[in-house]
Amino acid sequence: MSLTKEIGRNSTPAIRLAVVSMLLCGLLFPLAVTGFAQVLFPSQANGSIAHFTTSNSKAVGSYLIAQNFSDPLLFEPRNSSLSASGVDPDITLQDAIAQVPRISNLTGIPQGDINDIINQNVEGTFWIFGSPYVNVLRLNLALIHNFQTIYEQKDPGLFVL
């Protein structure tokens, strides 16, 4: 068969396949995933939004996205130019432990108590595998809730709803 004849014969099915595959892969598939995701994992599907307390619905960011903490009473994230994403929400365990003396000095919370909070929030290890890290927003929310009276006194702005 000649080349032009082969091209001509395949043009119509090719256009149709292009359209059908677009509808199937580009529209039907992501919409189906969205539907299932919203039913099965609504929190993750909408961006793992963090709330100030479990009882109050004020959103204070996403657990997965770093935010600025300029307050020296709280844990600081990595400088955004140091990570690949610019929004690295985590710091290494060593990095967290290094910040404990500063927070303890400024707030009067015993270092041991802060270390306990860090240890409760360590992620990234499994048996002998992985290297430990902690989520900065989780850490700070835990600090504020465990020592609410101290933070209410030192930084009342955090509690404005």
Binding site: V33, T34, A37, Q38, L40, F41, Q44, A45, G47, S48
Partner: peptide, 11 residues
């Protein structure tokens, strides 16, 4: 769906 369960958004 596994990715959504692990934290990847889908909305």
């Amino acid at each position: 769906l596994i990715f959504v369960g692990l934290g990847v958004p889908q909305t």
